[in-house]
Design a protein around this nucleic acid. Structure first.
Lengths: 156, 156
DNA sequence: AACTCAGTTGCAAAGATTCTCAACTGGAAT
DNA sequence: ATTCCAGTTGAGAATCTTTGCAACTGAGTT
């Protein structure tokens, strides 16, 4: 696509960059401690294909170390979500389900028909966000951008 | 602020565009019954300035009719959200807060220290979103942009 | 290797949200 | 106005998530 020269949109393709990201390193760099519970939970997340909810993660975790608590699962999920390492999906009513992200922070385009999640990143948008925040007297710590869209019909 | 000439940041002032939309009509058209609880909750939503959570709405509601239950508040919020009449904001860990989707869309800057919510709008960012989506083959139906920030210390 | 302490944990309790179900009600049909 | 019934409600139970706090621990420093 010719737009890439302008916007540097990075579309991440899951099946291609499926080398487990080194979350431990990322976490360490972010000043977060690598504890035994966190290591176990990260292992579960990076080695699963599905979108488990907190309870499911908890059950898998206590098979490895039965001292892990559900609170820690929830706390870890919140931590990872804020870091952009995982995504939270709240399907109508039910408990939140989680899915590992990959690589760097990125934003999301959600297909409203299929629920598919496309990840992208636009430096331009991020820069604008910074400027808007600055104008309002704030520094951005993190952000969340989700576009909900429908595939453009190309048949016509 | 001199930036306005550049970014046209629109900090929305609710009390200016406070024409109440006719939700009752909309609901009726959608085949939803207008019950006493729903009418009261709608009145609360259309006449408030803030972003109340379910508990706050509940408390305001029972002052008008003390038979209304919290379940009904939650059910009504889910109903209205699905209809697009209100927006749900899940700021960090706290309870969801709601806001009527009066006319114009806007984004949010959340003060991570105080929880304060500042509304803003940047046409520039929205235009970029459109372009990104288009490059990915999608039309945007709606979007959510939340910046989490900390007030810039101006004392130094 | 021992020391230190802010970050983290497990647990229990609180808080938030959804669900179940019998009773009730809006509004269409009569 | 009365009847009727699918949609709605209130109450409380169940489920999901966060929080307060004392005990614990990772990892930097000595």
């Amino acid at each position: 696509m010719q737009l890439s020269s302008i916007w540097r949109i990075v579309v991440l393709m899951k099946h291609i960059l499926n080398q487990k990201p080194d979350y431990e390193k990322e976490l360490r760099n972010a000043g977060v401690r690598i504890t035994r519970p966190r290591r176990i939970i990260l292992d579960i997340l990076t080695s699963t294909e599905d979108h488990p909810d907190a309870m499911k993660i908890f059950h898998r975790a206590i098979e490895i170390d039965d001292s892990i608590s559900l609170s820690t699962v929830y706390r870890t999920m919140n931590l990872l979500e804020e870091m952009g390492a995982i995504h939270r999906h709240a399907f109508n009513g039910g408990p939140s389900r989680f899915e590992q992200a990959h690589g760097d922070h990125h934003d999301h385009l959600i297909d409203v028909d299929t629920g598919a999640v496309i990840e992208f990143k636009s430096d331009k948008i991020e820069k604008l966000q910074e400027e808007v925040a600055k104008a309002l007297g704030y520094d951005i710590i993190y952000h969340r951008l989700e576009l909900y869209g429908r595939k453009i019909d190309q048949s016509s």
